[in-house]
Design a protein around this nucleic acid. Sequence first.
RNA 1: GACCCCAUCGUCUAGUGGUUAGGACUUCGGCUUUUCAAGCCGGCAACACGGGUUCGAAUCCCGUUGGGGUCGCCA
Length: 445
Amino acid sequence: MTVTVRFAPSPTGLMHVGNARVALINWLFAQKSGGRFVLRMDDTDVERSRPEYAAAIEEDLNWLGLVADDKIRQSERLDLYNEAVKRLSDEGLVYACYESPEELELKRRMQLGRGLPPVYDRAALKLTDADRHKLESEGRKVYWRFRLATEQVTWVDLVHGDLHIDAASLSDPIVIRSDGQPLYTFSSVVDDIARGITHIIRGDDHIPNSAAQIQIFKALGGIVPAFAHLPLLTDAQGGGLSKRFGSLSLAHLRGEGVEAMAVNSLLAKLGTSDPIEPRTDLAQLVTEFDFAKFSRSTPKFDEHELHRLNSRLLHALSFAQVQSRLNDLGVPADEAFWNAVRGNLARLSDVKLWWSIVHGNIAPAIVDAELAAKAADLLPPEPWNNETWRAWTKEISTATGHKGKALYMPIRLALTGLEHGPELQDLLPMIGRKRAHARLMGQAA
RNA sequence: GACCCCAUCGUCUAGUGGUUAGGACUUCGGCUUUUCAAGCCGGCAACACGGGUUCGAAUCCCGUUGGGGUCGCCA
């Protein structure tokens, strides 16, 4: 059977690093197994789902490079769910209930107050046909629950190993709301069967769901897929990631100039035994992927680590890998320039700054006018090459007696206007004699 | 409250009864004649606690503590 996985976001908000990690790992596993990756929009919650979020999620996924082999929307498949419910209710595995949400909430509060687990008491199971008619004639809306078998549900999880949940500790899941809308726990299983999903890879928080869903898979006559429950990411303080939702959204990170491959590299390696190192393409992440490398404990996601990784990634990018994007930024294709400056980039758009320092017009920073003027004087005639810098600074040193930082820093400031930057040996020939001379004399050039 | 998951340097982890407890990131120091980056060399830094089992425990068992998750007509 071909491996088939799915990423099933609900389009109720922007993708953040936690969702992205689940999507990535699904995709990597599919690639590694020569399988398929299905994108399923879980948009059955009509009140919260928004088409613009669905579009944003797809945009984020494309940015990361996680292209789906197949796309489905649950809102377009309601008939499928209704038909499945009909089948199960004929078999007595799904039953009609009539409590209002408020009544259920009250029941839960009372159970909690008595120190009991807030599990549905199955009162509706005791209803007779006459009771049901009466309730319906009173205008009560019916909703449907799946009747869980009281058993120990066990499975071998790809990351956790043996897992077991006592179904008695779970409420019978609601499969159809009183407004007729199917609910996730159920519709998800129907689609997983319909699409032949072989592996469900999702967050740890779904472990209790999985127990109920395994029973639904069996009730529907489907093959129970393998499960992999990934430990949820926490923030650097160990708290839930949801608090930082906004700033950790993919859209936000992208806006900050974080590379897609920096995100992919971190998310693929965090919580695994592999060192966290930048990878410039997804193919390498695919070959390195293995569930056996994943730890069972919750890793901390550190935004600073992402930014450090982003810098390291940029420094390692070859000219060929960025050429077209440099064009998009309006920076002419120049391999020598790229190789000179890439080690100083925190984000790709920083190249624009260096391009203007080399070829544009900037104001120099003069801290030692006398030294700068002398240096301008000693500028050799062009053509220049990588040896020019060494020969020139040596002459300045002999002429002025300056050396070390006292020699180099004023010149760097005059030439680039900045304290930090690439090797001047590489930059100087690109800046050229005319600009260098003007800047050393304190003129913008 | 009930149920589930988890516990090794600051962080990500290796380790499956006998190791000087290893690596990566961070950090610190040094080298590469200035800065930044990269590279190399070196240093600091961990088995949550308490009981067992055993000749021997980071490793197996029990308990405690701590952290995370779930208990929705959300997904």
